[in-house]
Design a binder for these strands. Sequence first.
DNA 1: GATCTAAAAGCAAATTATTTGCTTTAGCGT
DNA 2: ACGCTAAAGCAAATAATTTGCTTTTAGATC
Lengths: 188, 188
Amino acid sequence: MNIRENIRPGGRSARVQASVHEAVRGLLSTMDRSDVTIPLIAAKAGVTPSTIYRRWGDLQELLADVAVERLRPDAPPKDTGSARTDLTQWAEQYADEMASGPGRAMIRDVLSSVAIDSRNAGKCCGYTREQVQVIAERARDRGEDFPNVETVIDKLVAPIMYRILFDDVPPNSEKVLALVERLLPQQR
Amino acid sequence: MNIRENIRPGGRSARVQASVHEAVRGLLSTMDRSDVTIPLIAAKAGVTPSTIYRRWGDLQELLADVAVERLRPDAPPKDTGSARTDLTQWAEQYADEMASGPGRAMIRDVLSSVAIDSRNAGKCCGYTREQVQVIAERARDRGEDFPNVETVIDKLVAPIMYRILFDDVPPNSEKVLALVERLLPQQR
DNA sequence: GATCTAAAAGCAAATTATTTGCTTTAGCGT
DNA sequence: ACGCTAAAGCAAATAATTTGCTTTTAGATC
C-alpha cells in the first residue's frame, strides 16, 4: 500500500526489493503479463507472497514500481551540436521506446497505479522534463533560441504520448519531425 | 475475455449487461474503487460471478467497459456562434470533466484494459475527434478558418490529457485558454 | 563486541476470489 | 409450438489474498 522511499542501501529491505524487481523483470520478459501473479513472483524472488502483499499491496502497484524504474532514462540526451537535432533525435527515440510493446505496457502500469500512489506518473513526467531541460540548457549555452520546457511538453511530448496511448497509429519518424518543425519553425 | 459487440437489444444478454453496468456505477459512487470486487458486483446485479468472469474476464475489463460508456459525450458541443468560443467552451468542459476524480479514474480504467482489448482507448479518442469534427464543420459552414482535426488533437487535446495523466497540476481555465489562443492565433 | 529494539520477513490458517465442468434456461429461427 | 444454441446458473476445485503470530535482522546503544 505504501511504497517506501529511503530504503537504506544494502539492508535486508533493499535486497528483497532488488530480488523482487528482478523477478518481475524476468517474468515479464518470459510470459504474458496476464499470467504473472504475486505468488509466482514471490517464488521466483525467493520470498513469501505476504511480504510482497505487505510491501506493495497488489500486483498493479508492484508492476508500476518496476515500470517507473525502467522508464528512468539511463543517459542524458546526446549532444549533436544543435538544439534542433538534439531534440529531434531525443524525441524519435522517446517515441520509439514508448510506442513499443514493452514501453506501452510500462506506461499503462504506471498510470494504473495512480489511484493509490500518484507519485509514479509524476516521476515519469519529471524524467522527461529533466531530459528536455538538458537540451534547453545546452541550447542556451550555445546562444540558440529555444522554447521553454513547458512549451516543449505541450507541443511535442504530449502529442506523442497521446497518440501512443489513445490512437491506433503511434507517431512515426515523419510525424515526430513535423512536430519538431512546428516547435522550432525557422530553419536558420 | 472478449467483450462482445452487437448484442441484440432486449435479449437476456442485454439485460445482464445493463444490470451489471448499473451495479458497477452504483458501487463506484458509493465506495472506494479498491473495495469493488466481482462477487460484490455480481450480487448487486443479481447475477452469478461466473457470468461476469466469462463475459468480461476480469474486473479491469469490466471497469473499462463501463468507463467507455460513461466517457461517451451525450450531446454535441454547444453552438456559440463562433469557432473560437465553441472550441474554448468545449475544451474547458472537457478538461474539467477529465481532470475530476471520476474522470481520471475512468481514463485510467480505459487505459489499463488496453493490453487485452485495445479498442477501448481508440473509442474514447474517437468520441473526442467526433466532437472536434462537429466544431470544425460548423466553422467551415460559417466560412471561418479552422485547423484540421488532427492539429486540434495535437495542440489542444493532447496537452490537456497529458497534464491530467502525468502532471500534478491539471490544466485550469487559463491554461486551456492559452492553448486555444495558440491554436487560433488571430483575434477576430 | 554484546545486547536491545523496531521494522520487516516468514509461516500457516482463514478468507475470498477465480476457474471450470456440467446443467439449465431463454431467445431465436423454423 | 419445437428444437437449437448461446449464455446463465450452480457448485466443486483451485488459486490468490489477508491476517495474526513468530522469527529474523540490521542498526543503535551501551
